[in-house]
Write a protein that binds this DNA or RNA. Sequence first.
DNA 1: ATGAAAGCGCTAACAT
DNA 2: ATGTTAGCGCTTTCAT
Lengths: 344, 344
Amino acid sequence: MATIKDVAKLAGVSVSTASVALRGKGPVSEATRRRVIEAARALDYQPNAIARSLVTRRTRTVGLLLSDLTDPYFHEIAKGVEAVLSRAGYALILADTDRSPEKELRAYEIFRSQQVAGMILAGSGTEDEAHFEQLEKRDVPIVTLGRHRSGLPCVAVDNVQAAKTAAQHLIETGCRRIGLIAGPPGLLAAEERREGYLAALAEHGLSPDPRWMLVGDFTPAGGYRAAMELFTARGLDRHDRPDGLVAGNDQMAIGALKALRELGIRVPEEIAVVGIGGIPTGEYVEPPLTTVALPLKTMGEAAAQMLLCRIERGGGSLPEQHEEHIWLETTLLVRSSTRARSAR
Amino acid sequence: MATIKDVAKLAGVSVSTASVALRGKGPVSEATRRRVIEAARALDYQPNAIARSLVTRRTRTVGLLLSDLTDPYFHEIAKGVEAVLSRAGYALILADTDRSPEKELRAYEIFRSQQVAGMILAGSGTEDEAHFEQLEKRDVPIVTLGRHRSGLPCVAVDNVQAAKTAAQHLIETGCRRIGLIAGPPGLLAAEERREGYLAALAEHGLSPDPRWMLVGDFTPAGGYRAAMELFTARGLDRHDRPDGLVAGNDQMAIGALKALRELGIRVPEEIAVVGIGGIPTGEYVEPPLTTVALPLKTMGEAAAQMLLCRIERGGGSLPEQHEEHIWLETTLLVRSSTRARSAR
DNA sequence: ATGAAAGCGCTAACAT
DNA sequence: ATGTTAGCGCTTTCAT
């Protein structure tokens, strides 16, 4: 690999002149600038970001921490993050915690040692965000996605409202006995969505039967198991059964749909199902899934953008100028897993 | 951030002694070693990988280049890569090319300037792999996933065989008029799968009707459009229609399944459908998708492992010791989108 | 066993 | 406008 020294030598200038010329900042005669650029091209010179970072004390890398690379929730988010970052010339260091504290710690250490300019924390993570908040204090800006309780800057959606919208849609289309497959306890999004579900029911004077409330793990398999249990293991007779079901996320809704098909329970006629998330797959299952769509790509872009702002503003651990929380809107996507409005 | 200097001072030793003690290599008295470690912990010291890399001239980062972060094909692959890399203490720099040459070039430059220790190239990329092969020559090991024509070390599956297996399965379960939704022309995997499809038919003395051969873009929407065209725009009467369909990947198969449902064409009774890929979603569509599953996670792990080998062997641009190509097996996963064997 | 000194590739004062 | 010098945080000879 050619170094700036090689470039300088070939161009017949000093290293510092080469440095200045290459970056276009500072005073250089047009002639030498040209010579240096030319030399750089001839040598296929690529600046060594490592060396540069060491002296400038800032890198152009950001760490993205997420809890499961195979969870569709993260795919568009990651895509959005990557797009914004790479356009800005930043490198994205990705770490998957697999929801394991050890892996999270390892990721944290890698990020630190790599001197990331900032980090994006997506998904649950450990309850214990202590290390991260500490980092924030040391001038490593952090933006979280969905962890709005953490005291860290955050891009999020109103999960309570999202679940409320889901349940309301069910109510408006005629459901009265509405069940829930909640996400894993302890996960903020799951708790909030449960809350929204309860609130919507309460607002309409509907009381949720505890037998209709299940817990899944945000995976399709979890949704499948929950729905199976709901309809086979809970001793519900024909009129005790729910006629509507809110799933804590699309993944579980999709699993539930499969269980219902296997049980010969018609959707939406016998039970309407609504998910939360808006992942692309929802369109391709049977019936196509009605869902409260989260602006996933936008969430990723916004988080990256916000982080970039904070990084480039510099030393921004106490910024008042910009909002610390961005709330994005969700949208109800009505497909066929719920009844048409007119069927009310 | 504490530096090694701070640690040395606190421990009352020289920087070089601290360095040696911290890494456990070289001669240090047990007593000072302990003192240094203690000081490091007290200061929450984390070695600066940037500085270290500058002097050792090697980083512990590897670049992963893929063509679309939202394509399920990559999810388990990326997960496998990440797992192996992070376990080995490497940072993963991710870049999404979006199948755009400019973005690919940008990624290439970022990887280079970050001095990645190696790279994994997954997915199509530009035809022009020139830059990358050049890098390889400069001692930046590269492993490709599925680009086995490139002359670069590679982890791959036999796509010809995979498609052959798919078509054979259809034939064995009684299909005789077998169509194909091929992937994008120019994409190696797509071409090879087409080839396998043709070979299987030929071996059984079946001649493919050109009207049954469509092209999609590896997305569900593409598969949907292709299936719609096959059954509505090609003027096929009842007995001209295919009774079996090979899709170039699971994504397109899933899209096709949706189209068939909308058209009221029963699967597998009227037409059996088989995909290639084995993505998790296949299990949750209706009917569950029969597919030739690729060992995606293993592919990612193997590629990362192979890269690590080459990195740590050092200067390995001409290695004979290890295989340059790893071929992984595919497995037919029979679900309900094809007829049961007994129905032959 | 420990420390002093040099230097990785680059940028940033500071001369000239 | 250009060059000289110093130094980022660390590892690595080489003395001691």
